[in-house]
């Protein structure tokens, strides 16, 4: 049992990282921290791809003419794309947080929800009057 865990220690670390990220997204009320959680979550997936590309004894896939074992380069390329997507997501997320801060004066979910609820109540009252 312990051997099985140790032999796949990289996967266990990735799963722990994944859960930390997802937990932060769910539990934190601070909008910036949520994005940080999202980043950790995405990074764990990048590591998952990188780790599955590793071939024991393999080197970087550069053709030198000598017979060598190469690591699989395809997941690396895929993850390069995913990293770009991740950066775009983070940038857009922070841009939205800046705009939210400008119009609500807070980046705490509770404050924002309270402000929205107050607005909603005014709208309903106006609608009913």
């Amino acid at each position: 049992m312990l051997d099985a865990i140790l032999a796949h220690y990289n996967y266990w670390l990735i799963i722990i990282l994944m859960m930390i990220g997802l937990y932060i997204v769910i539990s934190r009320g601070n909008l910036v921290k949520k994005i940080v959680g999202l980043n950790i979550f995405q990074t764990s997936v990048f590591l998952l791809y990188i780790t599955l590309a590793k071939v024991t004894g393999g080197t970087a896939p550069i053709l030198t003419g000598k017979p060598e074992i190469f690591s699989n380069p395809l997941p690396h390329v895929l993850i390069l794309t995913a990293i770009v997507v991740g950066i775009a997501t983070t940038a857009l997320g922070f841009a939205l947080v800046v705009r939210i801060r400008e119009s609500y004066g807070s980046i705490e979910e509770d404050d924002i929800l309270a402000a929205e609820r107050a607005e909603e109540e005014i709208a309903v009252k106006e609608a009913l009057s």
Binding site: V25, L38, F41
Partner: peptide, 24 residues
């Protein structure tokens, strides 16, 4: 609209990342 877009972003990204884990 800002908070709606923010929530959409967080949930959409979690969804997409789950999808990539599956593909992986």
């Amino acid at each position: 609209a800002l908070t709606a877009a923010y929530n959409y972003l967080v949930l959409g990204t979690v969804g997409a990342t789950f999808f990539v884990i599956g593909i992986g």
